[in-house]
């Protein structure tokens, strides 16, 4: 059997992914963050951005970064089905990344949200964009979500008033290791999206051009004195 034939057998079946149109958000400090789909050829700059955070135990960056690193590789090497990656970039510098995948046309499985630049609610904006992608663009009726950090718990479970399905374990179990599963339904999304999700479309060409050249951050607030 030819190598490419073996590879074809190793790859998961794929659902069509509906493109997510880029949008821009004016952050509190006045900077413009573009949120857009990451492209497969950008995996190197994404991995390089995530890697330094693998050694940061504070706020569970270590587990989130480690798992996101794996998810990015799974996406790049076609080992995770129907995965998509969104990136938030300020003048092209990566400020945050989210990963997620569609299990079926009606079910989304939220993976991870990683914020690099802090204090501007970038994680909240990227998580909202991920939910927007699942429900508004991929057409999911619900998204399964877990939190691996107290910050995630506050941001998602409490602020979105997610539906607690943990009592239905193991029938309802998120793919991330049996952590209690919460669900954003279309109804819940419709109730919160006006206050949680924002962004201006279309993004002006000159702004999008800057965001199309992703750069790894030179500084990490999580790693004082970081030098690349």
């Amino acid at each position: 059997m030819a190598i490419d034939a073996i590879e074809a057998k190793l790859r998961p079946p794929a659902l069509p992914i509906v493109p997510y149109p880029a949008k821009m958000i004016t952050l509190a400090d006045g900077e413009i963050m573009v949120v857009r789909e990451a492209r497969r050829e950008e995996v190197g700059v994404l991995l390089g951005t995530v890697y330094p955070l693998i050694g940061v135990p504070a706020d569970y960056y270590d587990i989130v970064a480690t798992r996101m690193y794996e998810e990015l590789l799974g996406w790049y090497r076609y080992r995770t089905a129907n995965e998509f990656v969104l990136v938030g970039a300020i003048n092209g510098v990566i400020a945050g990344i989210v990963t997620s995948r569609s299990v079926s046309p009606k079910l989304g499985m939220s993976l991870h949200t990683l914020t690099i630049k802090r204090g501007l609610r970038i994680g909240a904006q990227l998580f909202a964009a991920k939910m927007e992608d699942h429900i508004e663009y991929q057409g999911a009726d619900e998204v399964w979500i877990v939190a691996e950090s107290p910050n995630g718990w506050r941001r998602w479970m409490i602020e979105y008033e997610l539906e607690d399905r943990s009592s239905q374990y193991p029938e309802v179990r998120h793919e991330l290791g049996g952590v209690p599963t919460f669900v954003l339904t279309r109804k819940l999304w419709n109730a919160v999206k006006a206050s949680k999700c924002t962004g201006v479309r279309p993004v002006p060409p000159e702004v999008l051009a800057a965001a199309n050249k992703l750069k790894m951050p030179d500084e990490y607030p999580q790693i004082p004195g970081f030098k690349r």
Partner: peptide
């Protein structure tokens, strides 16, 4: 960013 822009109500 916090008052005038289209995205201020969420930011």
């Amino acid at each position: 960013a916090i008052a005038d822009s289209e995205t201020a109500h969420v930011v």
